[in-house]
Nucleic acid binder design. Structure first.
Lengths: 208, 208
DNA sequence: TATTTATTGTGATAACAAACACATAAATTT
DNA sequence: AAATTTATGTGTTTGTTATCACAATAAATA
């Protein structure tokens, strides 16, 4: 291992490794080679080894990786040892789906507040969280700090909601609205946008 | 414009341009410079021009781009002139959210069939589409050909569902399940996976 | 009509990421 | 204990993508 710039693409693959390892740990496996992992994931073994080598020498030559050890290492690299507090804005279908998901595979991501603009929804308790009025996003006091915001509101409101979330100190945002957010560059934004994905998908289908 | 390999990243940006142009057309604008578009999108003007130049000379030097023309050109490049038939598997929150979305901004993507394994849901009509039993995915006859499959089922079922969809002739799949699909390489797969995105997001938040 | 300004299109360069080749080392076999 | 097998870790090479510098050209101005 050498001090080196770590490619962003490498970071993006780590959660994929992490999940697969998790499954294999549960299945009771205890040693794993990069080739074997490669077969599960469709990612070349050299790619996997190079990715891991940015962070340390986790394997044993001639043997492979200790599954549990590697799992823990990646957990530590990704900062998944601690829990992360999430605020979710927009409690429609997507919002609920997200809550289901994070609640279900309790993954270290805790939804600590929820916001919506629909008066019929405000005040309800969803997944143990009280839904606040979206207009109160600026002021309303929350006990715990919010680490991450998830935006699932109407596209026209997304930008303002994002700004409020940043004011409240989030370090990153997942945006399901098809709206470009203009945020300080130290805020990481993940754009999850079905229509865009469909857009480029059909380019490839149409030009198969 | 020269015959050249078009970067995949270029294709992925086209839908972003497309949506922005759409908004601007609606607003009644009619000329647009790459610099101006750049300001809306946070993508460098040279990047935008280079991306467009792979497909033709759409602009006028000293002036900019004719908005409507450019919009139509991108529409044509992405194969968005025709409509695309979608089958959706899994009619839970995510499934419904997707139906809402595609129905709402009727975008050329038509959901023509839906499948679910829950007997309480099978037979219901959602957004004008009858929900079929997931077990019938293999056999059940659909009038129209299915171009794209969207998978929103339980992770353990995702792989089998994907295979059935491929057997039915889809050219691409959007997969919301955190399951790696092992499909022939001519099938384009888009993995939409919140937990993975959160995973790499917190790497960056934690190492800000 | 010559000059300046605005803006596109593109070849060349730089930055980034993936793939490869192989040195290293553990375990197993002969 | 030597040879073989298995598998990691990494410097180098190749490929891909973004950025830059600037030529080309249209419009506006002097």
């Amino acid at each position: 291992m050498k001090e080196q710039k770590i490619p962003k693409e490498t970071i993006k693959r780590l959660p994929i490794y992490y999940r697969c390892l998790n499954r294999l740990v549960v299945l009771g496996k205890d040693t794993l080679s990069s080739t074997e992992l490669s077969e599960y994931l469709g990612i070349k073994p050299t790619q996997i080894r190079k990715d891991l080598s940015y962070f340390g020498d986790f394997g044993t030559r001639g043997v492979g990786y200790d599954l549990r050890r590697l799992f823990k290492e990646i957990e530590s690299i990704l900062n998944l040892e601690r829990t992360w507090n999430i605020a979710i804005a927009g409690i429609s279908n997507i919002g609920c789906a997200i809550m289901d998901l994070l609640d279900f595979n309790h993954s270290g991501f805790n939804i600590v507040t929820a916001f919506d603009s629909n008066p019929n929804v405000v005040g309800n308790v969803v997944h143990g969280v009280t839904v606040h009025d979206l207009n109160d996003l600026k002021e309303c006091t929350v006990e715990e700090p919010i680490d991450i915001g998830i935006i699932a509101v109407d596209p026209v409101d997304a930008r303002e909601v994002a700004n409020c979330l940043v004011d409240r100190g989030v370090g990153g945002i997942i945006n399901f609205a098809p709206t470009l957010l203009n945020l300080p560059k130290e805020i990481e934004v993940v754009q999850m946008d079905l229509t865009s994905e469909l857009g480029w998908l059909v380019f490839f289908i149409g030009n198969n």
